[in-house]
Computed example of a mutant assay.
Amino acid sequence: MPVTVSADALEGFIRDIFEAAGVSADDAAAAAPSFVWASLRGVDSHGISRVPRYVEMFGSGVANPRPAIVIDDAAPGVAVVDADFAPGPVALTQAANLAIEKARTQGVAVVSVRNTVHTGAIGYYVSRIADAGLVGIGIAAGSPMMSYEGAVGASVATSPLAIAVPGTGDKPAVLLDMASSLIALGKIAQYKREGKPLPEGSATTADGTPTTDPELAKIPTPLGGPKGSGLSLMFELLTSVLVTAPILTKYHAGEKKHRQNATLIVLDPAAFGSAEEFAANVDATIDTIHGLPKAEGVEQILVPGERSAGTLERRSAAGIPVGDKLWAELVETAAALGVAVPEAA
């Protein structure tokens, strides 16, 4: 049976683990909410389940617990953040804050991040932007782990896309958060941990043989075939190549160092007209979608982000469920670092 832990207790637990692993107090405090945000919304593959892996990356030198982050802020609406292999939640949270500040002045801002490790739940950063009343768009690229249409083996990254539009009234932000693959690697690990078969067509073995066995699955397949692999390629060009930090060419030439790059785009609705009218039209558009004729067997038509908002409401009240295997892993990680474990129900 899974244990249940409150969001506040888990956030403090993650913060303590990161600090014990060598991360500064400020960076640990910046990173911890991103994991809890994902778990609260049911995105468990990018939530607290990632914490032990981050500790491993700190220990192996893949991730830098004390990065010297450098920001090139020469252009008014543009900035490039060199993360020095900081954890993604540290670098991207800083980038989101900078992008919000710039967009409030310029109307639009583009902030790119290079040389980070595991971006984390990219929806978290655009949600922060939407919470500030702005529109957020985020894309990321990384090492090849997904097949490319027509190729065998790991060819491109499972590059994600997230778009958040501020909510209105009692409505949550409209949040699209998706990978360019049919399934993320973190989801495969989650299926493996839970002993469940993968959805048909979502992954292959290393040699390209389709499989639903999470023990054998190594390579996710692209969403929509050439559409998903094409998106991944374009995200590599608009993140990695744009900031002179290409990943694919170096990886396929033999340089296997783990790193990721990302770009955040922020739009201030007020710069395009009336922010109030924009909010009213967003509200009306959502109502229009909700009012569409329902297909047989459908109880409710949802817009992106509503399902996870419902999970957020439930888990905020009842606590976050943590599977037995993951909880044992977190307890073991904490014990190795001398960190106290929060009480679980």
Score class of each variant (00 low, 15 high):
Phe278Tyr: 12
Pro199Leu: 08
Ile69Val: 15
Glu194Ile: 08
Arg314Tyr: 09
Ala38Thr: 01
Pro166Gly: 13
Val81Pro: 09
Glu313Ile: 13
Pro293Phe: 01
Val5Trp: 08
Ser155Pro: 03
Tyr191Arg: 13
Ala334His: 12
Asn64His: 05
Val111Glu: 08
Asp283Arg: 04
Val266Glu: 00
Ala28Asp: 13
Lys102Arg: 08
Gly77Val: 02
Gly133Arg: 05
Glu277Gln: 10
Val341Pro: 11
Gln94Tyr: 06
Gln260Asp: 15
Ala121Ile: 02
Val156Lys: 05
Ser159Met: 09
Phe18Gly: 08
Leu237Pro: 07
Ser316Glu: 11
Glu56Ser: 09
Pro269Thr: 01
Leu248Pro: 00
Asp72Trp: 05
Thr212Val: 15
Glu332Met: 07
Ile122His: 00
Lys294Gln: 12
Met57Tyr: 15
Gly230Ser: 02
Asp72Glu: 11
Ala335His: 15
Ala280Arg: 10
Asp283Trp: 02
His290Val: 06
Phe235Tyr: 15
Leu330Pro: 01
Leu134Thr: 05
Arg15Gln: 13
Thr244Ser: 12
Asp8Met: 11
Leu176Asn: 01
Asp44Glu: 13
Asn115Thr: 12
Ala280Gly: 03
Gly273Thr: 06
Gly323Pro: 14
Val51Asp: 02
Leu216Asn: 10
Gly201Asp: 11
Ala7Gly: 04
Leu264Lys: 02
Gly142Trp: 04
Ile163Asn: 11
Leu248Arg: 00
Pro52Val: 11
Ala9Ser: 14
Gly59Tyr: 06
Thr168Gln: 09
Ala206Ser: 14
Val81Leu: 14
Ile219Phe: 07
Asp44Phe: 07
Ala96Ile: 02
Ser6Val: 08
Ala280Cys: 03
Gly338Lys: 05
Ser127Tyr: 06
Glu101Met: 12
Ile69Cys: 10
Leu233Ile: 15
Arg314Ile: 13
Gly208Phe: 01
Ile183Lys: 04
Leu185Gly: 09
Val111Gly: 09
Met1Tyr: 05
Arg315Cys: 04
Gly297Pro: 10
Thr263Ala: 11
Ala270Glu: 13
Ile137Val: 15
Pro67Arg: 01
Ile100Gly: 04
Ala295Cys: 02
Val303Asp: 04
Leu185Ile: 11
Ala173Asn: 15
Gly224Phe: 00
Pro52Thr: 10
Asn97Met: 13
Ala328Tyr: 07
Val241Leu: 15
Asp268Lys: 07
Ala270Ser: 15
Glu149Asn: 08
Ala38Asn: 00
Thr244Asn: 14
Ala7Met: 07
Arg307Leu: 12
Trp327Asn: 08
Glu276Arg: 02
Pro214Asp: 11
Ala203Gln: 03
Ser159Cys: 10
Gly47Asn: 01
Glu11Ser: 00
Ala179Gly: 14
Glu343His: 07
Gln94Lys: 11
Ser202His: 06
